[in-house]
Simulated scan of single mutants.
Amino acid sequence: MSLLPVSILTGFLGSGKTTLLRHLLGQPELSDTAVIVNEFGEVGLDHMLVADSEEKIVELNSGCLCCTVRWDLVTTLDELYAKREAGSIPAFSRVVIETTGLADPAPVLHTLMNDPKLAARFRLDSVITVVDGVNGLATLDRHEEAVKQAAVADRLVITKGDLPEAEVDTLESRLGQLNPGAARLRAIMGEVPADALFGAGFYALEERGEDVRRWLREEAYQDAAGHDHAEHAHAHDGSQAHAHDVNRHDDHIRAFSIVREEPVSGARFSLFLELLVANRGPDILRVKGIVNIAEKPDKPAVIHGVQHLFHPVAWMDSWPDADRSTRLVFITRDVSRDWVEKLLDALTGEREETDPVLQAGDRRE
């Protein structure tokens, strides 16, 4: 059975999520989409509804379904799926969850990865974060929620892209430093092609090759790790980056990748993940990667985790390319790359000496 893709649409208050969603739902590619909105959302889609808004599930003019989270996400998704299977609602093939502007997206990611019933029916497709082109820089400075929303994204959409180029370039560079692996797009009046936002590729194991490289994009994280403390780093598109400011909330956010050429023991790698979560779980905002497990050298393991929860390991049928190295991408809060590397090497046999820092869960940068 093919798992249904679920995308999370997040972004701070007033960033333009609903405008973007309204545009997306008008595109033919999303005509068979189910949308779940949080009942505390700042702007509704009432003008698009063709059924009584008091009903839990309504049909939009676009042909899409829309429902409101009144109890919890598991109940809502379970009900949607049951009605789909019974034929009482149109057979949607995608779900989009719109969070509130102040929401931390991590609990939604936790739910999708941790609930066994949902994991048997749905798969996480992408996290799309909308950033206000006018107020985005100030919002990132003042609100840690906005920083986390940007840090965990696979797609970053800057709204009001018709602003002067220099203003948007500055924001885009800041976002590039915060989350170098995420694709960055600009939207004018919410207009972005649907195919640019969906199909991020992680955990879509039926797709390989370039898809996996796009998912990991370890080159971007390696480049960012080498320029963490540059006064005037350059963005990947050559534009000037936002000047380093020690008072920014995202000064605590780190994005980096770790690559290891030699296969690792499955038991040792599992222990690495367990200790990583036990020591710094809340600060591991996101981990994803492919791993060369010594016991299964021809089938790479795919891992994906958010804070203290990891999706069950999945196995690809074959390597996506000639490179059989382990490639891990981390987005962390106040957790240094050096500490993670020492922990990994100590537990996988790369490093023989013991380090008391590892046991303490070092917070030093």
Rank of each mutant, 00 (worst) to 15 (best):
T19G: 01
T129L: 09
R214S: 06
P5T: 06
E210R: 07
W315N: 00
D345W: 03
D211V: 15
F12E: 12
L109M: 14
P180Q: 07
V259W: 05
S62K: 02
W319Q: 01
D338Q: 15
V192W: 04
Y221R: 00
A120P: 07
L80N: 08
Q177S: 04
S88R: 01
H23Q: 13
R214W: 00
P107H: 11
D115A: 09
N279Q: 11
W215D: 04
L118N: 10
E274N: 08
F272V: 02
E191A: 09
G190Y: 05
V157N: 03
K296D: 14
G199A: 09
M189P: 00
T139G: 00
L3Q: 14
W319N: 03
G281F: 02
L30H: 05
V43H: 10
R84S: 09
A103M: 12
E295I: 01
L344Q: 05
T75D: 14
H242A: 02
A230M: 11
S318L: 14
L358A: 11
C66H: 13
Q240V: 10
L185N: 01
E85S: 04
A241Q: 01
V95K: 09
V127H: 08
G266V: 03
G11A: 04
D125M: 02
T75Q: 14
R337F: 08
M48T: 04
G133S: 07
R186M: 03
Q27I: 00
G209R: 04
E231V: 00
M1L: 06
F12T: 09
P107Y: 12
Q307P: 02
V277I: 14
S15G: 05
R260A: 11
E55I: 05
T76P: 03
L276H: 01
L178D: 08
A120Q: 15
D195R: 10
E144D: 13
A51H: 14
L13V: 07
T68Y: 05
V96Q: 07
E172C: 09
F310E: 01
V69L: 14
P105Y: 12
L20M: 12
L171C: 06
R333L: 07
T348H: 11
L171M: 06
D345N: 11
K299V: 06
D78M: 09
